[in-house]
Design a protein around this nucleic acid. Sequence first.
DNA 1: TACTCGTTTCCTTATATATCTGACATAG
DNA 2: CTATGTCAGATATATAAGGAAACGAGTA
Length: 182
Amino acid sequence: MVEVVNVVASGALDVELDLEAVARDLDDVVDYDPEKYPGAYVRFGGDEPLVTLYRTGKYIITGASSEAEAGQLREKFLTLLHRHGIVSAAEDAWFTVQNYVCMADMERSVNLSALAIGLGLEVTEYEPEQFPGLVYRPHDHACVLLVFATGKVVITGAQETESAEAAFAAFRDSIETLLADE
DNA sequence: TACTCGTTTCCTTATATATCTGACATAG
DNA sequence: CTATGTCAGATATATAAGGAAACGAGTA
């Protein structure tokens, strides 16, 4: 079972923004420090996803647990901007999910050194002294898997949930073949 | 050699995962 | 004063974004 733990999405408004003015208008939710970073952070609540807004009108939503949650936050964000007259509804250009970060559990321990050899050294990276997880980049799936000795797996880089699920399913099948004796 | 222009890298944010390190704290 | 304990911060992964800095190459 693959569980989505983070969704990164981006979108654009067809207008250039004066972030200084936006930060003044929405002082209670906006955190803007151009000396530190060019984007303005919009936080509705400590537990809600983060919106990073740029001068160009583009924005990023990070920290949502589902595509639906990202979409709801986007609506909330756009409504806020409309209410303050910062943008009009017509200036809303596009919005897409860019990355799904998922978690899965094989519920068995894994010998990562053996797995690296089994999967092939050209598709894996395992340096336990640098990082305890094995990095697996399958050729036939557009995402990256981080495999841990405990059997926990992090799947990241997927543009769709289905792609993360397919990558994990294929990985779980190969694990059973490669490490059947352990 | 000096300057310009294009490319590349880093920064920041979220999130799970696990391992080690360094900085503190508190107890004996 | 030393022992153990706790906690935060790297380490690595993907991804968007804009700006700054660094860097290589080409020209005068």
